[in-house]
Design a protein around this nucleic acid. Structure first.
Length: 335
DNA sequence: TCCCCACGACTTTCTCGCTT
DNA sequence: AAGCGAGAAAGTCGTGGGGA
């Protein structure tokens, strides 16, 4: 069994998922205030001249959709090297389109471990993005401000985002697979309006294989929710979700707790629930044989889950593939 | 001495506009 | 269309800070 502490994994581990977060322990060093200024002024000219503006806008769009991206997440989605991601994010920061937080995680034995910096959209970034997308900037600014001001679930968000980023990273070199859609919780909540939006899953993904489209919702568990609430979430998913729901537990025993809650709630009904835990994800990666269906013992890879026949979506347009943002300016949620 | 991350310096590759 | 050059972007390597 792999060690559960993500801090123990090294770059040399073939499938190390270095940005998986340990839940709820990290502290964030952030600027005092959110910049309320929305003037874009001289920036417009610099951006228009900039060769990488399409990618920059896709970075901003992804920040608008998922709120918190680390240097590692940005690298997985948009860059081929960590240095490239660092350089570009620094530039966006200098243009005051994004703001940066440092993360430090206290170690159990004392001391601190530095994690990659976290980037958030500024008001200026939201305005520039809205201008680029020809949309109303106000909702974008409002959501970006909320992400800055009310970052209560930041660890949880980074865990969810880290899962999808690791999926992008793991599939980017595969010629006939890829993650096409990644919807954040904002995008999913609208689909849950008829139910309790508080019970909506944490993310939605559409994974393409050679002959199938596999849609799945993600539940990223922090290990703090009571079984009662787990069952409520299971009920909501049974009512509102067609397709798979993947539950990720922080440790093996917690996975068993989740499984018993799910099995109790879904007994006798068809449920596409699968579970895993962070140790397996770190050891095998998100594409490894880690997903265990309810009332079964075997674990299977994501690509082996049943899906529907491939539609017009193209593998080469999947997230992380070369230049994907050129063809999908709407970010990870767009067509 | 090692780890992790950010970043500076230098080199190489790519992109774009201009000229012929 | 082809060739050229300037500047931007990307690749690589080493360093530094903060920690064990």
């Amino acid at each position: 069994m792999a060690d559960l502490d993500p801090g123990r994994y090294r770059d040399s581990d073939a499938l190390a998922l270095k940005w998986f977060q340990a839940g709820g322990r990290t502290i964030f060093v952030r600027p005092q205030d959110w910049e309320p200024t929305t003037s874009v002024g001289t920036l417009a000219g610099a951006l228009l001249r900039d060769q990488g503006r399409t990618r920059d806008m896709a970075v901003l769009a992804s920040l608008g959709q998922h709120h918190y991206l680390t240097t590692g997440h940005a690298e997985a989605l948009f860059f081929r090297s960590a240095r490239g991601a660092q350089r570009r994010m620094r530039k966006l920061e200098e243009w005051r389109l994004v703001t940066r937080w440092h993360q430090m995680e206290p170690r159990s034995v004392g001391g601190w471990r530095r994690h990659p910096d976290v980037f958030l959209l500024t008001a200026r970034g939201a305005t520039v993005l809205a201008h680029y997308l020809r949309s109303d900037p106000r909702p974008l600014i409002k959501r970006a401000f909320s992400a800055f001001q009310y970052a209560f679930h930041l660890d949880h968000a980074l865990g969810t985002n880290g899962f999808f980023a690791s999926l992008v990273q793991a599939s980017r070199e595969l010629p006939n697979q890829g993650l096409y859609h990644w919807l954040g919780d904002d995008g999913i909540r609208s689909a849950f309006q008829e139910h309790d939006p508080e019970l909506s899953p944490d993310g939605f993904g559409r994974y393409l294989t050679a002959d199938a489209e596999i849609g799945f919702h993600l539940e990223w568990d922090s290990g703090t929710e009571r079984p009662q609430r787990l069952r409520a979430k299971a009920r909501a998913a049974l009512a509102a979700v067609r397709g798979h729901v993947l539950w990720v537990a922080p440790w093996p025993a917690r996975e068993l707790t989740i499984r018993s809650a799910l099995e109790r709630e879904s007994s006798g009904r068809v449920a596409g629930f699968h579970t895993t835990h962070a140790g397996l994800l770190c050891a095998h990666g998100p594409l490894g044989p880690v997903w265990r269906p309810l009332e079964q013992d075997d674990r299977r890879p994501l690509s082996a889950l049943p899906g529907r026949a491939r539609g017009p979506l193209q593998i080469e347009d999947c997230l992380g593939k070369p230049g994907w943002w050129e063809r999908r300016p709407g970010g990870t949620e767009g067509a």
